[in-house]
């Protein structure tokens, strides 16, 4: 009993939250301009796409999966949408087709994992390479796709403001809210927790685990598409090469840092928010401190490292209780 209370008090989420709060207070006190409304909006805005991708990843990770194809889906479906628009397809149908592509990728991921029983790590790894290659090969021949003039009607998605708040922040909030509602209040959401907590028990007690797996990957792909459109409209282009960058690792970090264990069944959207905010505060603070961009990356990685080290110190793992094959 005592152990449970203790671990609840010093869970990784708490550690990260406390770190974030301390950093926030320190920065507010010592950094000129940090606490201004404009800066705070910039702060959240800079991480809102990361946050949306984090929500997508969280849904999968809670169900004891992982979606390494999330960045490929994010970039390639958005790139195809812009490409279609460039070729003269009206923006409405182009958006729908892009969404269909993303969901198709998610469905294939789910089918590979649920029915072919390929481990999620490798199914999505393979799919990431395949999706990137297939779209570049068959649908989008150029590395960078620009937003054509006939797509100007959707540029508000990434570049607009509502009551002075940039739309990406609002969309992040909306996606986070819907994600939370799904996980916390729907039957499927509760089953995903059950599945992540104890897969065999969930299956034996009658949860439709295969359908749920397919569902969670389809959902994550659809959310990734939303993130893709936000980026595409914010920068007026999609650089498909982002698939080969380290963005996917950042997404995983946001999720895990917030306290959603990779072994599933724990945490919620709240954790994604915490993780995203920590990254946002860090980046913003360092920027204001005039730390060079490359050095910022080093410091950020070091702080992430200390967060997971701290977690392991307060919640040590034990040889006796370790799960075999749990990496």
């Amino acid at each position: 009993m005592f152990g449970r209370i203790k671990s609840a008090l010093v869970s990784q989420e708490r550690i990260v939250l406390v770190t974030a709060v301390i950093l926030f207070c320190v920065f507010s006190l010592f950094l000129k301009g940090f606490l201004s409304a404009a800066n705070l909006l910039t702060l959240v805005r800079s991480v809102s796409v990361l946050g949306v991708l984090g929500v997508a990843m969280a849904i999968v990770v809670i169900g004891r999966g992982v979606d390494l194809a999330i960045v490929a889906t994010y970039a390639m479906s958005a790139a195809w949408t812009l490409r279609l628009a460039t070729q003269g397809v009206a923006i409405g149908p182009a958006l729908l087709l892009g969404l269909a592509l993303a969901v198709a990728v998610g469905l294939i991921n789910g089918l590979l994992i649920a029915f072919a029983e390929i481990p999620a790590l490798f199914a999505t790894l393979g799919m990431a390479a395949f999706v990137y290659g297939f779209v570049r090969f068959a649908l989008v021949p150029l590395v960078v796709v620009y937003m054509p003039a006939n797509a100007a009607s959707i540029s508000w998605i990434g570049g607009g403001f509502v009551a002075g708040v940039p739309t990406p922040i609002l969309l992040f909030a909306l996606v986070a809210f819907l994600g939370h509602a799904f996980l916390a209040f729907t039957k499927a959401g509760r089953f995903i927790y059950a599945m992540g907590d104890n897969f065999a028990a969930a299956r034996n007690s009658g949860a439709p685990v295969r359908g749920l797996i397919v569902l969670q990957y389809a959902l994550s792909a659809a959310i990734a598409y939303v993130a893709g459109i936000i980026t595409a409209t914010a920068v007026s282009s999609v650089n498909t090469n982002v698939v080969n960058s380290s963005l996917i690792y950042d997404v995983i970090l946001v999720v895990v840092l917030g306290g959603i264990g990779l072994s599933g069944g724990r945490g919620g959207i709240r954790n994604v928010l915490v993780g995203t905010l920590l990254i946002g505060i860090l980046l913003n603070g360092m920027t204001i401190m005039n730390i060079q961009y490359t050095l910022q990356n080093v410091i950020r990685s070091l702080i992430l490292l200390s967060a997971i080290v701290l977690d392991s110190l307060v919640n040590p793992r034990d040889e006796q209780t370790e799960q075999q094959g749990d990496i």
């Binding site: 090469n241 982002v242 960058s245 963005l247 913003n284 920027t287 204001i288 961009y293 490359t294």
Partner: peptide, 21 residues
């Protein structure tokens, strides 16, 4: 004086940092 490695996304992060500073 920084390198964006031919990547628009990276360039965006770099320049927004520079502008804030």
């Amino acid at each position: 004086n920084l390198a964006g490695e031919w990547d628009a996304t990276k360039a965006q992060s770099i320049i927004s940092t520079v502008i804030q500073q």
